[in-house]
Design a protein around this nucleic acid. Structure first.
Length: 396
RNA sequence: GGGUAGGUGGCGGAGUGGUCAAACGCACCUGACUGUAAAUCAGGCGACUUCGGUCUUCGGGGGUUCGAAUCCCUCCCUGCCCA
């Protein structure tokens, strides 16, 4: 098998849940022509996380093979709100939020995709122009039964939860995006299956050849549940290196294989070696350190990854106070609780008191037991430690 | 249009006149332990507090009562069934 064939094989399999139509797509990839690869992202959250990055990496792989990336910013669909990955109705976002999220989105996507050679479209360009007659025509391609048979919709209906009629329209719009850009291939996560297939249907209805679709797996979050912004278990692309490293270290051991496969470019043969090493007694922690470094390197570079590892070992394994601690200016005679509440060391004074009561706060070598303790000149330069990971150097 | 069931803290979900700042679960925070910011265990989890308490919460507004998340009126919102 040639290198190119190998790459194509990996493209079609690594972290991939399903390809439709697999043989058709393989043949087209092997034939060498440049394909139009579509990915749509709705700017519903300002943060891209590792889960979203899986599909972006896949897109990048296509790009590296010489295909044209069509990146669709869902400024229109984002307002409508996709329900595919949601267990409840999604609120419609305001145009302002969309615009703000969009900016950070592109910035983050740019870390993975080469935006210079990509086509970037905003789907309001064409969706804005559709009238009721167009929508009616497109809606006629689908039946209501298909829609309500979708697992997550069915579940909500069974539970007596509300499903808005607006939600029915979403797949039509995403599908029409494919028509508008004449996509050859569309990527998406497993939760997108229905929407991706809608693209094929609509393209056929509009006399286009139906796109092939490549569905990537979803990855689980740091707590072992589905990675989702609303669960708060995400590892974000904009996380600072230390956080990113720490979050990766906190994933359950069972997720190691999945993360190596989906979130890194470590060759699969090597991943296999690492995994079998763990089977025969190697410490999973070491594999996780490797994983964390790989991931931090992808987004922040090797040097930062190295630093993050050191920080982690010093702070959590050895429980030392880290070298580079942010400083905070404190006036004389201010109470500890006030300092904590006014900075982000505690949510408010009550929270600060609780943390102190529970023995989670120390200043230098001294354990703080009284929230009313006052800072004096002699505290200058001491490090205030809150919990396991919050350090601040006090400057009087 | 008719009927009926509901709207409770970040989420799910108890509570139906005082003992409710509101059970329980999830998430979150702190501690112990550890290979880890994992798992497990313990504690905490509205705000302010001189730790005695004080103040603001149970869809919105109004009322009854010594006292309401709980009763009444009204408005808004949602599910289900029927037409």
């Amino acid at each position: 098998m040639s290198t190119r064939e190998q790459k194509i094989e990996e493209l079609l399999t690594r972290g991939v849940a399903e390809v439709i139509d697999r043989e058709h797509l393989r043949a087209r990839l092997l034939s060498g022509g440049a394909l139009r690869i579509k990915l749509g992202i709705d700017p519903t959250s300002p943060h891209l996380h590792l889960g979203r990055a899986v599909v972006l990496r896949k897109l990048r792989d296509f790009q590296d093979l010489g295909h044209k990336v069509i990146f669709i910013v869902g400024d229109f669909t984002g307002v409508i709100g996709d329900t595919s990955d949601k267990e409840s109705e999604r609120p419609m976002l305001s145009a302002d939020t969309i615009e703000e999220n969009m900016r950070t989105y592109m910035e983050q996507a740019g870390k993975i995709i080469n935006l210079d050679t990509a086509e970037v479209h905003y789907n309001s360009t064409w969706l804005d122009k559709l009238g009721y007659d167009d929508i009616g025509e497109q809606a006629d391609v689908f039946s209501l039964a298909e829609f309500i048979a979708r697992e997550n919709i069915k579940k909500r209906l069974d539970e007596g939860k509300r499903v808005s009629l607006r939600e029915v329209l979403y797949p039509l719009m995403q599908g029409f995006d494919s028509v508008a850009v004449n996509a050859d291939v569309e990527l998406g996560g497993t939760d997108q299956r229905f929407n991706l297939l809608a693209g094929r249907r609509l393209q056929s209805a509009h006399g286009q050849a139906p796109q092939d679709i490549l569905i990537t797996n979803l990855i689980l979050g740091t707590d072992g549940r589905k990675m989702s912004s609303s669960w708060g278990n995400t590892i974000n692309l904009l996380d600072i290196p230390n956080d990113m490293f720490g979050k990766v270290m906190s994933i359950p051991d069972e997720l190691l294989l999945s993360y190596f496969t989906h979130c890194t470019r470590v060759p699969l043969s090597e991943v296999e070696k690492i995994m079998s090493g763990i089977q025969t007694g190697a410490n999973p922690r070491d594999a996780k350190v490797r994983l964390a470094k790989e991931i931090v390197t992808l987004y922040h570079g090797a040097e930062e990854a190295e630093k993050a590892e050191q920080y982690f070992v010093e702070t959590f394994s050895k429980k030392h106070i880290p070298q580079d601690v942010r400083e905070i200016k404190v006036a004389e005679n201010i109470k500890v609780v006030d300092v904590m509440a006014e900075s982000d060391l505690a949510k408010n004074k009550s929270d600060a008191r609780r943390k102190i009561e529970q023995g989670g706060v120390s200043l230098g070598d001294e354990k703080i037991s009284d929230g009313a303790r006052i800072f004096t000149k002699s505290d200058n330069g001491k490090v205030l430690k809150v919990g396991k990971k919050d350090f601040v150097r006090i400057v009087l």
